[in-house]
Design a protein around this nucleic acid. Structure first.
Lengths: 225, 225
DNA sequence: TAGATTGTTAATCGATTAACAATC
DNA sequence: TAGATTGTTAATCGATTAACAATC
C-alpha cells in the first residue's frame, strides 16, 4: 500500500470514460478549426462550439499531455496530434466484421474509421448469396473461416452486426480466434472470457433515453401524443 | 425554497441517464425469463445475468414504481409492464428518417423499434434513384417535402443518417417541420433551437473508447500491435 | 422459525464545477 | 501593464455501493 506512483500505463488505464468519449469531439472541432486556417485555440473556444465547460475541457486535454500556454491557448497542430497519439489512432487495429447486412455494410462504408485507428479488413457471413462478394472493397468470407484467419492474421478486434439469435455463436468464434475486443451491435448480453473487452452499442437503450426525454418535454409543455 | 415536493413529472424528469439506459437491459432479461416460464425474479437474478450490482438494480427499478416483496422478489409480468409504462413504450412516437443509405436502411429494418416506442413512418432522401422506392414497407420521399409533412402529421421525432456535410441542413428542415427530438447519427454538432432534444450517436466516440481500452490491455499483457 | 430479499438511509467514490495562483 | 488563459487544488454534485431494519 506504499506508493501510488504515476506509472504511465496506470494513468492511461484510469482515463474516465466520459473523457474518452469527449476527446474525439474535441478532435473534430480542432480539425475544423485548423481547416479554417486557425493556429491556436483556447478551451473557451472549444467550449463554445460544443456547449461544454472550459474547465472540463482543460482537464480532459491534460490527459493527452499536451501543454497549453496561459493567455495564448494551445497550438492546434500539436494538440490534434496529441489527441490522436493518446487515443492510439496511429496504431491502426485491424478488425473483422461479422454480419454483412445493412448495418454491416454501413460500417464497412465508414471510410474514416481508418483515421480513427480501426480498419475493417474483411467481413464474414453465412449467407451463400453474400459470401464471395465484396462491399466497399472488402471481401465477404464464409463465417466458418473466421477463427483460423483471425489467428493467422493476428486480428484483435471483432464487430458483430448479426441478428440477435446468432450473436453469442459469433462471439464464441471470435474468442476462439483470439479476438480481444468486440464491438457488439446486437442487443444481447454476450458471455465471453473475462479478458475480452466487449463494447455494447445497444440502440434500444439510446432510443429509450431519447423517447423518455421527449415524453417528459411534452408533458412539461402540456402536449400529448 | 419551501418545499421539495415529489411532483411526479419532476421526479420523472430527474431520472439519471445511466438508469434510463439500464432499464431496457432489464426489460430484455425479464422478457427472456418470462419466455423461459419464470414468474418471479429477484434483483440478484438480474444482476447475475447482466453483471450488475443488485442494489443498483433495485434502485433503478424503484423509479418505475413497481413494488417487490421481501424474500419473494418481483412478479415478472407487472415489472415488465411497469418498465414499458415508465419508458413510454405504450405511447408510440412516429418518426421520420432522413438518409436512406445503408445505415438508414438498417434502422428502417429494425422491426422491434415499434415495441420500444418508436415507429419510423417514412424516409426521405434527395437521391432521385431512391425517391419513390420503399424499404421495409416504408416509402422514400423527396427531402423537400419533409417540413410540410412533419407539420401535417405531427411528427415529433427525426432520425438523421445522412453524410456529415448535409446533417445541419437536414436538422434545419426538421426543426422547421416542428420536430422536437432528433436522433443524430452524423458525427456533427448540430445547432438547433434550445427546446429541441438532440441525441448524438457518434460511433467514432464509441470506437475511440474501445480501441483505447484495447491499447491499454495489450500494453498490460506486453503485446504490441 | 430462519433466512433471503426488499426498501431506504448513510457512506463512498468519481466526475464536474468553482476558485485561484502562475504566467504569458 | 492589464487581462485572458492555463494548470491545479478544493468544493460540489451525483451516482454507486454498503449497511441494515422491515418483512415475507
Amino acid at each position: 500500500m506504499a506508493a501510488n506512483e504515476d506509472i504511465p500505463s496506470d494513468k492511461a488505464a484510469s482515463v474516465p470514460e466520459p473523457t474518452l468519449r469527449r476527446l474525439p469531439l474535441y478532435h473534430r472541432v480542432l480539425k475544423d478549426m485548423l481547416a479554417g486556417g486557425a493556429e491556436r485555440v483556447s478551451c473557451t473556444d472549444i467550449g463554445l462550439e460544443l456547449h461544454l465547460d472550459p474547465t472540463q475541457i482543460r482537464k480532459d486535454l491534460e490527459f493527452t499531455g499536451v501543454a497549453g500556454r496561459p493567455r495564448i491557448g494551445y497550438q492546434l497542430a500539436p494538440l490534434i496530434e496529441g489527441i490522436e497519439q493518446f487515443l492510439g489512432w496511429n496504431n491502426v487495429n485491424e478488425a473483422f466484421l461479422v454480419g454483412a447486412g445493412n448495418l454491416g455494410a454501413a460500417l464497412m462504408g465508414y471510410k474514416r474509421f481508418a483515421e480513427y485507428g480501426m480498419n475493417i479488413v474483411a467481413a464474414f457471413d453465412t449467407d451463400p448469396l453474400k459470401v464471395g462478394k465484396s462491399i466497399g472493397g472488402k471481401q465477404i468470407l464464409p463465417l466458418a473461416k473466421l477463427p483460423d484467419l483471425a489467428k493467422r492474421m493476428h486480428i484483435l478486434v471483432g464487430i458483430i452486426t448479426v441478428p440477435d439469435a446468432v450473436a453469442q455463436e459469433v462471439a464464441d468464434l471470435m474468442t476462439a480466434g483470439g479476438i480481444m475486443a468486440i464491438w457488439n451491435f446486437a442487443p444481447v448480453q454476450l458471455r465471453v472470457p473475462e479478458q475480452v473487452i466487449v463494447h455494447n452499442e445497444n440502440l434500444y437503450c439510446s432510443l429509450a433515453s431519447l423517447s423518455q426525454k421527449l415524453g417528459i418535454a411534452l408533458k412539461a409543455t402540456g402536449r400529448t401524443r
